[in-house]
Deep mutational scan, measured.
Amino acid sequence: SADYSSLTVVQLKDLLTKRNLSVGGLKNELVQRLIKDDEESKGE
């Protein structure tokens, strides 16, 4: 998976916004949300 932890919070929020995901929470939560979304989209 992508190394989201190396991105800035601003970059993470931009990715979340593009996916229509919540941008609330700490950086670690944003990273986990993106990883979870990646895993769910692979399952389709």
Results as ranks from 00 to 15, higher is better:
L26A: 13
S41C: 08
S5M: 13
D37F: 12
D3F: 15
N28H: 15
R19M: 02
L21A: 02
T17M: 14
L30S: 01
S1R: 14
Y4A: 01
E29M: 06
D37V: 04
D3K: 14
L34V: 02
V10E: 15
L7E: 01
E44V: 13
D37R: 05
S1L: 13
L34E: 01
K42R: 12
V10H: 12
D38N: 04
G24P: 03
S5D: 11
R19T: 01
E29T: 07
L12Y: 00
L26V: 10
S41D: 08
Q32K: 08
L30Q: 03
E40I: 10
E29S: 06
A2G: 10
L12W: 00
V31M: 07
V23L: 09
E44Y: 14
Q32V: 06
Q11W: 03
R19A: 02
R33G: 02
S22N: 08
D38P: 02
N28A: 14
S41T: 12
I35V: 09
R19F: 02
K13R: 15
S22M: 07
I35H: 06
E29P: 01
Q32P: 01
V10I: 12
S6C: 09
N20D: 06
K27I: 07
V9G: 03
L34F: 01
E29V: 07
R19C: 04
T8F: 02
L34Q: 00
D38Q: 04
A2L: 13
E44L: 14
T8L: 05
S22P: 15
Q32F: 06
L30R: 01
S41M: 12
E39Q: 12
E29C: 08
L30A: 01
D14W: 15
G25K: 02
L16R: 00
G25V: 02
E44Q: 13
N20R: 11
G24E: 15
G24H: 15
L26H: 12
L15W: 04
V31H: 02
L12Q: 00
V9M: 12
L21F: 01
V31L: 07
V31N: 01
G24N: 15
D38Y: 04
K18W: 06
V31A: 04
E39Y: 10
V23F: 06
A2S: 11
N20P: 00
K13E: 06
K36R: 12
Q11C: 07
V31T: 04
N28T: 10
L21Q: 03
D14V: 14
T8P: 05
N28Q: 12
E40V: 10
S5T: 10
S22G: 08
G43S: 11
V23Y: 06
D3A: 09
G24W: 11
R19K: 04
E44S: 13
